[in-house]
Structure formats: C-alpha cells, structure tokens
Design a protein around this nucleic acid. Structure first.
Length: 278
DNA sequence: GTCCATGTTCTTTA
DNA sequence: CTAAAGAACATGGA
C-alpha cells in the first residue's frame, strides 16, 4: 500500500516512539520474512539503541548506535504499528521489536498478509541500493535527462525505481494528471517546460499527500494505526468512470505494463504515435 | 468461483 | 545484448 507518502508517514509516526529507545527484545514469527536467511537478528538488535529512522524511496532504514542498519520494506500490504507491551500479535504479524525509553515500553509490530515486504539486516553495508534519485529533491534538469533516455511510456518510467525512486501506481497517475501528460506519452517526448511541469507536479502531489497522511485506498495505516485521507483528493486514481474534477469528462482506465492506469482523456491528451498495431 | 489490489523480481519474449 | 512484456510471489476483499 505504501508509496513514498505512506512510507514517510509511517516514519514520521514511528520516530517519536522509537528513536532514542533501546531494543529490549525481538520476536521473529515468520523466519522467511527476514533476510539474509539464518541471520541471528536478536544478537545484532537486542540491547542496541535506535539512533535514527529514515525513509529512502519506499524503504525504511533503521540506524542503530554504532552505525549498523536494518531495512524494513512494506511491500504491498505491510504495516508497522506501535502496540502496548503484551499485545497479542495478529495472524500475519511476522516481526516484533520491543523497545523501551525512560521507563516506558512499547512494541513495534510488523504485519504483512501478502508478505511482499520484508526485513533485511544491512549491518555496516554501504549505501548502494540501485535506486534512482528521490522525487522530492530531483531537479527538472535531472528528470528531463532521465526521460530523454527512453521511449517507454512516461508512466512506466515513473514506476521504474532504478530511474526515479518512490512513486508507485497512485502517485504516478496523480502526478501525470496534474502535469496534464497522457500516461502513454513516450518519455523522451516530455522535455523542456513539460518536463519542468511534471517535476513540479510530482513534488506538489507528494507533499500534499504527506500533509494528508498518505492515501488509504485499501488498508494502509500509519504507525499509530491512523488512516490517511489523501485518497479523498485523488483526481484520477481509482476514479474510472467518475467525472474529472477539472473538466467533467469521464476518467478512463487502461492497463499499462500490467498496472491499472487512470487518466482524464480531455486534460491529458494522447500522444500522436506513429506506429499502430497490425 | 472470478477478478483485482498502494510492489518487486525473476523469466520469457522480441 | 537490451528492453519490454508476463508471470510469480501470498492473501483477502468485492
């Protein structure tokens, strides 16, 4: 469920409880959820203090005193929630970190029914992660260079984490709407002012989404268990058939690289493709 | 039973 | 060789 704004919101709500706290215990309820296989996570984590928690793209990086790091990825259905000590884990709670600070303690429950997420011990491993630049800080020039390198549909580019990292299906569609760009437009054709507009649109959409605690389309909640509200402000995502908030035209849905893709056929004009199907 | 789902990665095809 | 399309992963809700 989590794209950049949701992951950032989880981090924001996790930090006040976890940073500065000491890990008193962990529980691994689903060993295959932890990587690398067979690592003794308890030996690395118990007794350590959490120095900081940051987001990189859609990933959560927990840094410990001494510089070791733990990566937590939420996949499609992952959540990390703060629970009272002794809270009974749900069926799909795979990993629990017990923390305490100033005499008060809490548990961080990582729950993930589909198990597309996971927990990876990085230790002192370097920062190389194969991810593209962060969309909140990318420059228009940088974005334009990335787009110029390929003729793949612009939507496919925005979802390619190696090129730009953090957007998912919701925010790719929402950003393209704000920029007035059709999702099938070849990436290399988005240049100059249109590339700059897309860059601004991406940042505006992500910032507003973070301000609204992310989008809860299905079951996303932050570390406090609260839903986001940005889904109410979606212009296109999950609105197929509904009227465009800008022009009233029916929002259209197509499938692109296997993903549901929504856009306004009037506000986002289709590219003129020179090729056609035989 | 069927289809679809906020993500990533491996395999197959062109 | 590269790029793009497809399948797979595991579960639950409509």
């Amino acid at each position: 469920m989590p794209e950049l704004p949701e992951v950032q919101t989880v981090v924001n709500t996790l930090v006040p409880v976890a940073v500065g706290a000491t890990i008193s215990a962990i529980a691994i309820r689903k060993p295959v959820y932890i990587e690398p296989a067979n690592i003794d996570l308890a030996a690395h984590l118990v007794g350590r203090q959490i120095a900081s928690i940051h987001r990189r793209a859609k990933r959560i990086l927990v840094s410990l005193d001494g510089g070791d790091r733990l990566l937590m990825h939420l996949g499609m259905t992952g959540r990390i929630t703060v629970e009272a000590p002794g809270t009974a884990p749900l069926r799909h709670t795979h990993f629990i970190i017990s923390v305490s600070r100033n005499g008060s303690s809490a548990e961080l429950h990582m729950h993930d029914p589909r198990r597309f997420g996971g927990v990876t011990w990085l230790g002192q491993a370097s920062g190389e992660d194969g991810l593209g630049p962060e969309p909140l800080t990318i420059t228009a020039k940088q974005l334009e260079a990335i787009l110029a390198a390929t003729d793949r549909p612009i939507k496919a580019l925005l979802l390619d984490q190696a090129r730009i990292a953090g957007l998912g299906n919701i925010y790719a569609d929402e950003s393209l709407f704000v920029a007035g760009i059709h999702p099938l437009t070849p990436a290399s054709r988005v240049r100059g002012e249109r590339a700059a507009a897309l860059c601004r649109a991406i940042k505006q959409v992500l910032r507003r989404a973070i301000q609204h605690g992310g989008s809860t389309v299905r079951n996303y909640v932050d570390a406090r268990g609260s839903k986001g509200s940005f889904q109410k402000l979606h212009n296109v995502y999950d609105r197929a058939g509904e009227p465009c908030r800008a022009c009233g035209a029916a929002i259209q849905r197509i499938v692109l690289i296997g993903r549901s893709t929504c856009f306004c056929p009037r506000c986002q004009r289709p590219p003129r493709l020179k090729t056609h199907r035989a």
